[in-house]
Amino acid sequence: MIRLEDVHKSFGDLEVLKGINLHVAEGEKLVIIGPSGSGKSTLIRCMNYLEEPTSGKVYIHNHLMSHKRRAFINKIHSSMVFQQFNLYPHLTVLDNLTLAPIKLKKVPRKEAEEIAMMYLKRVGLEEKANVYPTTLSGGQQQRIAIARALTMQNRVIFFDEPTSALDPEMVQEVLDVMIELSHEKNFTMVVVTHEMGFAREVADRIIFVDGGNILEEGTPEHFFTNPTNERTKAFLSKIIR
């Protein structure tokens, strides 16, 4: 579904990704962990070309990504949920969900709204359809953002630290929605997160990124019982209490 071949990314003199090779299978739930500044966010942002790799290739569903193809490939294959939600503040919740399907996928408004309401219901916020996002709590906004991603009805969703900007008491409501999503077999999820409980429960595979390289990868059992890499061990010992 997603393939990265020798992906490098530099910001000026700083090389953030140093040759990433990665394959994410269709339906796989991949969790990316790593310390801040490790390049994990840049890695997931390279997958939908929010960051364009300095060199290397990114394939989504066998389509080679490029600057020109970004809009089209993202439209038909993937959606993203951001740390800062990034809902459109000038639109109501319902319009946030239906804007892209109506304008980009040419879905008739009525149909788009029905689909949107279905997903709002799924994240438990159908009664918020007609309010503006700024009136909602962080947890609610992020659930709306997930519903917005789902309304695109694409098979890949990228989650870039979806709970890092939330107050602690709101983290679980968002994780619950994500866990529920992970039960869908043909849905591919790539999640950058520090939530180890979530990773353990949901991930088919975890990769540990540091210094712009993938240092270790394996199943949750492998990671939480006998990680081999020293840096992985050090990182996990700090993050799991």
């Binding site: 959606s79 951001f82 695109m152």
Partner: peptide, 27 residues
């Protein structure tokens, strides 16, 4: 207008021009 607005639009498949038109300029 925060940069995240453009990024959200790109991630949904908006081109730069359509993102400006539908998302940035109205704000």
């Amino acid at each position: 207008v925060p940069k995240g607005q453009l990024e959200a639009a790109y991630s949904q498949g908006f081109s730069h021009i359509s993102a400006m038109f539908y998302i940035v300029l109205p704000q």
